[in-house]
């Protein structure tokens, strides 16, 4: 999926990351798609994997809540909270994955 501001998925991810203070407030949508997980607030490259995995899980839960409630997204068929959090967690735990990668996964989990 192309990362573009006209997409409801992309704008919802951008809004979620702004709301959760994971990116600097002055970051535009274009720049956000290119950011890697290690460029977000929660991922600390100096910390151990144990800490980063725990932070990633906490953030996955907040992203799920924000998308489902603030952005009124519903789950795709055969998807639920459990599946959504587990799939997003896989992306969040990988320092090199980008926000665009996260958006691709979110597009398969939620309907906007």
């Amino acid at each position: 999926m192309v990362w573009t501001e006209s997409s409801d998925v992309c704008i919802s991810i951008y809004g979620t990351l702004q709301t959760l203070h994971q990116i600097d407030a002055q970051t535009t949508i274009d720049t956000t798609g290119l950011l890697r997980m290690q460029d977000l607030q929660f991922y600390n490259t100096t910390a151990s994997g144990d800490i980063n995995n725990a932070n990633a899980l906490a953030l996955a839960k907040l992203i799920d809540v924000t998308l489902a409630n603030s952005f009124a997204a519903s789950y795709q068929s055969n998807t639920d909270t459990n599946e959504a959090i587990s799939r997003m967690l896989t992306i969040l735990q990988d320092a090199g994955k980008t926000v665009e990668n996260l958006s691709d996964t979110v597009a398969t989990l939620y309907i906007f």
């Binding site: 704008i11 951008y14 906490a58 809540v65």
Partner: peptide, 27 residues
């Protein structure tokens, strides 16, 4: 892992649409 809090108020589809418009305008 056990979590307390982290709840968000449920918006209506219209409010969610408005929220997306706000972030587009913010951009």
């Amino acid at each position: 892992s056990f979590f307390w809090g982290g709840f968000a108020e449920k918006n209506s589809p219209e409010q969610a649409k408005e929220l997306r418009r706000i972030f587009r305008d913010y951009n």
